[in-house]
Design a protein around this nucleic acid. Structure first.
Lengths: 119, 119
DNA sequence: ATACTTTACCTAGAATGTCTACTCGAGATG
DNA sequence: CATCTCGAGTAGACATTCTAGGTAAAGTAT
């Protein structure tokens, strides 16, 4: 119960896959480490719940976007290391582009050109 | 079946409420017009399906974020005009802030500082 | 040895919100 | 009259996240 989960944000549906794929672009990681990486890199804005994480990893595995391998963690515990596949790399590019498009589109609605200082 | 619904993007869960509230900040509109406004202002990236729109409007009504009033549309048809309430205005501010926070957090993951030109 | 905490993985079921695929009525148009 | 468009609406499927559990093994303290 650290003091920092005060105002974390719940994820929007569909964004977790993208975050995981992007995180694995830097190299293979086990599940727990993926979650912590996302939380750290988002400056603790994003919280990745285990109940979301593992289903997501299995989903990505089944779709062939990542592969898994048994191993041992930094803390000497059994862990599954996930690695981005070539297919996953393509998927990452597609989803990144889609996110950018979406974020820009929503931005245009929230801050229309020619409307300033209001609200 | 216009040619422009080729590469529209499906909405992320939770974003529609925000888009509707923001659209109504400019003044009351009926449902159909809200959808068209969002599509236009997003430069046709966002598609607002009727099956998403009306449930969303009823949801917002029930939460007291908007109010409705019978009226007549520009095309002389019966229509329900929705108006942002004071509570809805507060909600809009909260959701806008949350969106910005989230979009920035995801941006930090997709484009970490100190990593350029890769991928 | 024993207890407790942390790490890492996992799952079932609820909740949420969007989508597809319809229906319906009324005004406009030919 | 038939047809089209506008505007509102619903049911049910679907996908994903969350809550709230659980397991096992390693480290730590007593």
């Amino acid at each position: 119960m650290s003091t920092r989960d005060v105002d974390r944000i719940e994820l929007l549906q569909g964004t977790l896959d993208l975050l995981i794929l992007r995180t694995l672009l830097l190299g293979p990681l086990h599940g727990h480490a993926i979650a912590k990486s996302i939380e750290r890199n988002s400056e603790d804005v994003l919280a990745v719940e285990q109940g979301s994480l593992y289903p997501a990893l299995h989903r990505l595995l089944k779709r062939g976007w990542i592969s898994s391998e048994e191993g041992t963690s930094e803390n000497n515990r059994r862990a599954k290391f996930y690695r981005l596949t070539a297919k996953g790399r393509r998927q990452l590019r597609a989803e990144s582009a889609k996110w950018e498009r979406l974020a820009r589109a929503i931005g245009r609605i929230l801050r229309p050109a020619g409307e300033e200082g209001r609200l």
